[in-house]
């Protein structure tokens, strides 16, 4: 046996410096995670973009929760139709004289609900499939094929088809978006989990118990959590875009306000060419959510990785 092989470690996958450190440490995993998270937070606080994005996201969540305090629910109609922003109406009025400000504020609720619920379902299912596949190598091949197959499907046409067949409602939107988001999560989490299950401490855990559930929940999932956090944010922002897209195509819930519905109604009323405020404000809201979610995930990822931390 050559010295090289011994240095390579027990795993078949080459290890990065940071992972090698983790795997060779004698200290318990939980302690290491505790110190790592503190370091991550220290690094994160030095990322102005990340803090800004976090603040923006917090603001949107606040708007969603405090909607009743910020604006009355949009009335069914108003006297002043298609008024530009100004006067009593911050964001102007739509083709039925309703306040666009009220619609955007109340639309935040539905948009965040879809984002949270869809990404939660996608993450839960995607992670489960990923870690199970990574741990039980016999079914990994099958899972890989299913993931590749699902990823290669034309997502938008299928979403449209399903939403049209089942009928428009918030639940439909959430399920449809979740159904097409989990493979992406699975792919990212699986690649990380594959590395983890081959590390010596997982082998060690196998000596302590025969329960794969215990090993997966105690040792595999905690290690892949940072990847999951990043994909939650990315999946959520993608869910908002998909939901807005479906609503714009008339496949959203016609009785609940969402940013996509404001755009859809602007298009239906033929007011897009003359009333810029109908499309600008909901679009800005979508942009704010997607941008802050993306920046936040980038900042978190940078902060988590010792190599990319700002000195």
């Amino acid at each position: 046996m050559s010295a090289d092989k011994t240095l390579g470690g027990a795993g078949t996958v080459p290890l990065s410096a940071a992972e090698a450190m983790t795997s060779t440490t004698a200290e318990p995993v939980a302690d290491e995670n505790g110190r790592a998270s503190a370091a991550t937070w220290r690094a994160f606080r030095r990322e102005p973009l990340g803090l800004l994005a976090g603040g923006l996201l917090a603001l949107l969540v606040f708007v969603a929760i405090a909607a009743p305090l910020l604006s009355p629910y949009p009335a069914s109609f108003g006297e002043n139709v298609l008024r530009p922003p100004g006067g009593g109406e911050w964001f102007g009025t739509d083709a039925l004289g309703r306040s666009v400000y009220a619609e955007v504020v109340w639309g935040t609720q539905q948009s965040l609900l879809v984002a949270a619920a869809a990404s939660l379902i996608a993450i839960a299912f995607g992670t489960l499939v990923a870690v199970v596949g990574a741990y039980f190598r016999s079914i990994d091949g099958f899972i890989g094929v299913v993931v590749d197959l699902t990823l290669s499907l034309p997502v938008l046409p299928l979403m449209i088809l399903i939403a049209a067949l089942v009928g428009p409602s918030t639940t439909t939107i959430i399920l449809v978006v979740a159904a097409f988001s989990w493979p992406e999560v699975t792919r990212i989490v699986r690649s990380q989990a594959l590395t983890v299950v081959n590390l010596p401490y997982v082998d060690a855990a196998r000596l302590m118990t025969t329960s794969p559930v215990w090993i997966i929940t105690k040792h595999v999932v905690p290690t892949v959590t940072p990847v999951i956090v990043v994909s939650v944010v990315v999946t959520a922002s993608r869910a908002v875009l998909s939901a807005a897209g479906l609503a714009f195509l008339g496949l959203g819930d016609p009785t609940t306000w969402s940013w996509g519905r404001i755009l859809y109604e602007a298009q239906q009323s033929g007011a897009m060419s003359s009333a810029w405020w109908l499309t600008l404000f909901p679009s800005l809201a979508i942009l704010a959510l997607v941008l802050s979610a993306t920046l936040l995930s980038i900042a978190y990822n940078d902060a988590r990785n010792p190599k990319s931390r700002r000195r």
Binding site: V81, A95, Q267, G270, S273, S274
Partner: peptide, 26 residues
């Protein structure tokens, strides 16, 4: 694609007539 683009095309002189009736608010 829809009445919005028709209106824009009429404004830009691309078409001479819109066959669809106009949305009331327009």
């Amino acid at each position: 694609p829809d009445v919005n683009t028709e209106i824009l095309a009429l404004q830009s002189g691309e078409v001479d007539v819109i066959a669809n009736s106009l949305p009331p608010a327009q």
